[in-house]
Design a protein around this nucleic acid. Structure first.
Lengths: 201, 201
DNA sequence: CGGTAGATTGACTATAGTCAACACGAGTGG
DNA sequence: CCACTCGTGTTGACTATAGTCAATCTACCG
């Protein structure tokens, strides 16, 4: 694909910033990207993570608007850049490509709607349990049942939509109840059923 | 357009229910539709309203999934039904149609992301103020500055993501502060600037 | 070895949810 | 015509949940 250029990025690098113009999207070859919005008081709200095979930045490209989120590397990544004009061109001439993208956008929309309902209606405890299950679903566990994504307590709080201290207290509680084990940022899931129950899904 | 059929619906009618299969989408000719999800405890979370010119149900059609929301008539409506196969066909053969839909999905996605951040980070007071401003933006005011959409207190609560009683108390507060006036379900906005300030946008 | 970022804990507070009682008006059926 | 019910709105009292602030603690890094 002569149109694609690949780039390497390291943890902490910012791919694009909320409010900036972007000229294309990126397809993730490897690594993990954190996509977040910044609230009025400066607090991050993590919207989602993107991993290998996923596409970021397409919303701004199609709407021809400034980015409404910031994309930052969580784990060293390789990304392919795809120019906006190419994306638009492909959508216009290739019906299947258009359908794929539409399905992608609709999938994210469905997830966003669930997220809204959860944040609006569930307790922080329920949401944290659910977030752990989602992370397990998306990133899996290694052979020792440890979540294959490393997040600070603050980042966890910024997914759940709560204060860092609340996450810390709840994680300790889950640990007390033998649902998880903690070792620094490593979170080991030992009682999946209990977690599902806590999440109240 | 021989493919289109139009239907009349009355307040309270349900167009489709969360979990059900739908075979096409509806384009709103007139009226207002309430789109909501039901949380685990049965509480409605209103995701958005659709009014004349807007399209509902396309997410399920493109993803070929059960509906993830319920669509219910808030104000008597006329809707055009568009079969799913036609939508998919048009996306595949008409590049501009595909782009339009993609832009629509992306627009909703951007709004959903903002909504997530707001619910996660703002207080109920701020969110209620913001909701009133959004309703004004989307449905306008009549000549007496009254919001052109009539919602129960419970529905307001189900947009904001809070308890009915909290909405009632906050509306009374806004009234005390001469920001709005209330007459049953009619909400008159008298101090827009104060409302914006409260919403902390 | 000092410095820094992140993690943890305790104490306190505020925000918002719950529960219960009551008000009010629109319809309904005796 | 009147009692009644139902849905909605309102208010008060209480409670619980979660946020804030401050003090440490820890690990890692230069």
């Amino acid at each position: 694909m002569s149109y694609k250029e690949t780039f390497q990025f390291r943890r902490g690098n910012v791919i694009y910033t909320e409010g900036s113009r972007i000229t294309g999207c990126y397809c993730v070859s490897s690594g993990i990207i954190k996509i977040y919005k910044t609230g009025t008081d400066g607090k991050e709200q993590i919207i989602r993570f993107a991993k290998a095979g996923e596409l970021i930045g397409f919303r701004s490209v199609f709407n021809n608007e400034a980015a409404c989120t910031t994309a930052q590397i969580l784990e060293d990544s390789t990304l392919c850049y795809i120019p906006g004009e190419l994306m638009v061109h492909l959508v216009k001439v290739n019906g299947n490509f258009a359908m794929d993208l539409l399905q992608l956008a609709c999938k994210e929309l469905g997830e966003a709607n669930s997220y809204i309902t959860d944040i609006a209606q569930k307790s922080v405890r329920e949401r944290l349990a659910e977030v752990l299950l989602n992370l397990k679903e998306n990133f899996g566990l290694n052979q020792s049942q440890v979540l294959q994504i490393s997040l600070t307590r603050e980042e966890l709080a910024n997914i759940v939509g709560t204060a860092t201290e609340s996450v810390i207290r709840l994680l300790s509680e889950f640990k007390e109840d033998k649902i998880i084990e903690l070792q620094g940022r490593q979170i080991k899931i030992i009682n999946n059923a209990a977690l599902s129950k806590l999440a109240n899904i």
